[in-house]
Design a protein around this nucleic acid. Structure first.
Length: 554
RNA sequence: GCGGGUGUAGUUCAAUGGUAGAACGGCAGCCUUCCAAGCUGCAUACGUGGGUUCGAUUCCCAUCACCCGCUCCA
């Protein structure tokens, strides 16, 4: 019962997006291209507003975050270090009988077999590999599924010139960590934020714009001290209440507090643009789901019309953002692959260390050593020996005692396009309206939060054929235009123009009428201000209009 | 990439083996003193490419895109 209804809801949203100019199919006149979408006039405004709000709240309005704008194409070595070149390239094969799809390497592993390559470098399934679904041995040849978009730098298309379009913006932040640290006058804990395009050659783009091959991310990498350093400096890592926002950042916060802090900060952001907690969902990744280097990851979900129900009939939602505690994995990888030190020197730690008891020193040293050894072992290169790893871990732990460490990181990583879709789905509402003649019709209103609304105010002369009204309305438009996105409309009846703005999600309309011109002298230079969601009207002075609107739309 | 479904104006839907209609929307004009009023006019479609046929939007094939599963996680 619910399924078709939800599809219908999604279809209505898709139709409205096209009709009102929020989202178009990319390259539509050539038949489209799978997994790519364009934003029309209203969508472009909506997206700009969202990105600007993120940028402002994450960087400009904070003391502890700096911004970055890196290139989309970077040295391919970055993607070696990050693991994307290897992990984003999975050999897949299909069962010809039951049509199930497998990752060939996992399929082999499950059966204690090994996937090998033939002399031409192609993957070959060992004889006797069976489909774990139906037991058939009729499997297609493994084909590599590479999610990285490849290109060539320079005019020669040779293997030496291969580069990739970034599959995430985060790695550039790690790669530029030292430069930002040195130029921004920040010190740990601090963050680097970036908004930008990312590209993934998805197997199956799905759910309208939700999974696209070209998309945009808003990512923060927030660098923190390892817990061992916090403990050395402050005696102990702060303990957290079980739930809720932990308040203003404190110097004795460990990774758990910072992780919680960013989850709650991000939820506040979503609430601030109209996504209430009830529309959101949360997923705390289980230890099995987590990447080996990650300590925790909380996903913030939105309940889309296409979101599936769980076994209990509850809608969990689909992911808008993941907030991961990634330990010191990323910077460590880049340190190892680039050979450039990614550690920082911490005066506080250095000063504090000397005052610790030898027992405490030994305890912290050992814990840091174990963590480093664990990391180095898991990321070992072929041929690296246990002795080499132990030597490096010892060096790292000795470094800690001198005030040196590789920062850990909390990563709130959000998808812009997913958020746009969530905002559209959330804003979409329809009501049946019955007019004076008893005729009822369904009307659409996009109830965007004024902060994200593509158009902030519609300026409407009550009548088009009275030049005095039109000229006054144009003057009001020009008064507001430098401050916000204004839409002027003088065609059709006033009701129709209100309705048009409702469909665009414009929170306010001002109407210039004969009272504005002084027909009623008391109302000279005032306008009708009409509210989108309830049709309420009030009278405002033109002189107060700009401030009134400005404070309510930002 | 595999399996299932879909494909007609901007949108939502019709009709038809003899080259397509409507409603809403859009544009222009008239009119209109606050919630899609009215009148006049205009524009816009058979996803693409082959085939069968005297003739295809209609039948067949391929392709592309969209939706639903397998995979993916911003």
């Amino acid at each position: 019962m619910a399924e078709p209804k939800e599809n219908l809801q999604m279809e209505k949203i898709v139709s409205l997006c096209k009709r009102r100019g929020f989202i178009f199919q990319s390259s539509e006149i050539y038949g489209g291209i799978n997994g790519f979408w364009d934003y029309g006039p209203l969508g472009a405004e909506l997206k700009r507003n969202v990105k600007e709000l993120w940028w402002n709240s994450m960087t400009r309005e904070r003391e502890d975050v700096a911004g970055l704008e890196a290139t989309i194409i970077m040295s391919p070595a970055i993607w070696k270090a990050s693991g994307h070149v290897d992990t984003f390239s999975d050999p897949m094969c299909d069962c010809k009988k039951c049509k199930k799809r497998f990752r060939a390497d996992q399929l082999c592993e499950d059966q204690n077999l090994t996937l090998s390559r033939n002399p031409e470098g192609k993957f070959v399934l060992p004889v006797g590999t069976r489909c774990t679904g139906c037991g058939s041995v009729e499997l297609t040849e493994p084909r590599p599924f590479n999610l990285m978009f490849k290109t060539y730098v320079g005019p020669v298309e040779s293997e030496d010139n291969v580069a990739y379009l970034r599959p995430e913006t985060a790695q550039a932040i790690f790669a530029q960590f030292k430069n930002v640290l040195e130029t921004s006058r920040q010190k740990v804990p601090f963050g680097i934020g970036q908004i930008g395009k990312a590209f993934r050659n998805e197997v199956t783009p799905r759910n309208y714009t939700f999974r696209s091959r070209e998309f945009e991310q808003m990512e923060l990498e927030f660098f923190i001290k390892p817990d061992e350093a916090i403990e050395a400096i402050h005696g102990a890592v702060a303990t957290m209440p079980a739930t809720g926002h932990p308040g203003e950042p404190q110097p004795d916060w460990g990774w758990q507090a910072w992780h919680r802090y960013w989850v709650e900060e991000r939820v506040r952001f979503y609430e601030g643009i109209g996504l209430s907690r009830e529309t959101l969902g949360f997923h705390h990744q289980t230890p099995e789901e987590l990447a080996h280097y990650a300590r925790a990851c909380t996903d913030i979900l939105f309940k889309f019309p296409f979101s599936k129900k769980d076994d209990h009939g509850n809608v969990k939602g689909d992911e808008l953002e993941g907030i991961a505690a990634r330990s010191d994995f990323d910077l460590s990888q880049h340190q190892r692959f680039s050979g450039k030190p990614m550690g920082v020197f911490d005066d506080e730690l250095r000063a504090a260390w000397g005052k610790l008891s030898p027992e405490k020193q030994a305890d912290l040293w050992k814990r840091y050593y174990d963590n480093r050894k664990n990391y180095l072992t898991k990321s070992a290169r072929p041929g690296e020996t246990a002795e080499q790893i132990q030597k490096q871990a010892t060096e790292d732990a000795n470094g800690l005692a001198k005030g040196q460490y590789i920062p850990h990181v909390i990563e709130p990583s959000a998808g812009v396009d997913r958020l746009i879709l969530a905002l559209i789905a959330n804003a979409y509402s329809e009501t049946v309206k019955t007019d004076a003649k008893g005729k009822s019709e369904t009307v659409f209103v996009m109830k965007f939060h004024p902060r994200v609304a593509p158009i902030k105010v519609g300026v409407l002369p009550l009548l088009k054929n009275k030049p005095e009204l039109v000229n006054k309305a144009l003057a009001v438009r020009d008064l507001l235009r430098p401050w916000m996105n204004v839409f002027y409309d003088d065609s059709g009846s006033i009701g129709k123009r209100y309705a048009r703005q409702d469909e665009a999600g414009t929170p306010f309309c001002v109407t210039i009428d004969f009272d504005t011109l002084g027909e009623n002298p008391e109302l000279l230079d005032t306008v009708t201000l009409r509210h989108r969601d309830d049709g309420r009207q009030e009278r405002l002075k033109i002189s107060e209009l700009r401030d009134w609107l400005f404070t309510r739309t930002r």
